[in-house]
Measured scan of single mutants.
Amino acid sequence: MDETGKELVLALYDYQEKSPREVTMKKGDILTLLNSTNKDWWKVEVKITVNGKTYERQGFVPAAYVKKL
């Protein structure tokens, strides 16, 4: 869990989004888990830094590609 009590997951593999509802992740990324009720796709939040500014983006990743921490 992070400092706000949200559950975290670890990306076990790289994943490139294939639709606007998904998010890209790299092996080793730590993501915030938002919803894991679907056994195949989990909703996560990723933080992306571009030119020194951090953005948060929500989307789905394959559940088999992440592990709860």
Rank of each mutant, 00 (worst) to 15 (best):
T24N: 06
K26G: 04
K68Y: 08
M25A: 02
L69H: 05
Q58I: 13
T54L: 12
T49M: 13
Y55T: 11
L33K: 01
I30G: 01
W41A: 02
E45H: 07
V66Y: 01
L34P: 00
L34T: 04
N35D: 15
T37E: 13
V50G: 06
T49L: 12
T37R: 06
G59Q: 01
Q58A: 11
M1Q: 15
V61A: 03
K39T: 12
Y55S: 10
K18A: 10
N51Q: 10
L31H: 03
V23H: 02
L10H: 04
W42F: 06
E17A: 14
K43T: 07
V46Y: 08
L12T: 04
A63H: 03
V9I: 07
K43R: 11
L31A: 08
V23F: 08
L33E: 00
L34F: 03
M1F: 12
K39D: 13
E3F: 05
G28R: 02
N35S: 14
V50I: 12
A63W: 01
D40H: 13
Q16K: 11
V44F: 00
V9L: 09
E17C: 10
D2V: 14
D2K: 04
G28E: 02
N38C: 08
T24R: 05
G28D: 05
K26P: 01
G52A: 06
L10E: 12
S19M: 06
L10T: 07
V50T: 08
A64C: 10
Y55C: 10
P20I: 08
E22D: 05
T37W: 08
G5Q: 14
L10K: 08
N38W: 06
K47R: 12
E17W: 05
P62R: 03
T4C: 12
E7P: 10
P62H: 02
G52L: 06
T32P: 15
W41D: 01
G59W: 01
Q16E: 13
G59S: 01
K27G: 05
I48N: 07
Y15T: 01
E56D: 12
L8N: 05
Y65D: 03
T24G: 07
A63Q: 06
V66P: 00
V66G: 01
T37F: 07
I30D: 00
S19P: 04
Y55Q: 10
E45L: 11
I48A: 08
V9K: 01
D29W: 07
W41M: 05
D2L: 11
Y13I: 09
T32N: 07
R21T: 13
F60S: 03
W41P: 00
T24I: 03
K53H: 14
Y15L: 02
V44R: 00
K68E: 06
T37V: 10
L8G: 03
Q16F: 15
K68S: 09
A11F: 01
I48P: 02
R57E: 05
K67P: 01
Y65H: 06
G52M: 06
E56I: 15
A64L: 15
Y15M: 01
K6N: 09
Y13S: 08
D29E: 09
E56G: 12
K6V: 12
W42R: 01
M25H: 00
K27I: 05
Q16I: 15
G59A: 03
A64P: 08
L10C: 07
V61M: 01
V61H: 00
Q16T: 15
M1I: 13
I30E: 03
E56T: 12
N38M: 08
K26Q: 08
Q16H: 11
K26M: 10
V50R: 09
Q58F: 06
G28H: 05
E22R: 04
K27N: 04
V9Q: 00
T37H: 10
I48S: 08
K26A: 10
L12C: 06
E3Y: 04
F60H: 05
K53P: 04
Y13F: 14
K67F: 08
V61R: 00
A63L: 01
K18T: 14
N51M: 13
M25P: 00
L12R: 04
A64R: 09
E17D: 04
M25I: 14
P62C: 02
V44N: 00
E22A: 05
K27A: 13
K18L: 09
T32I: 14
D29T: 06
T49I: 15
T4M: 14
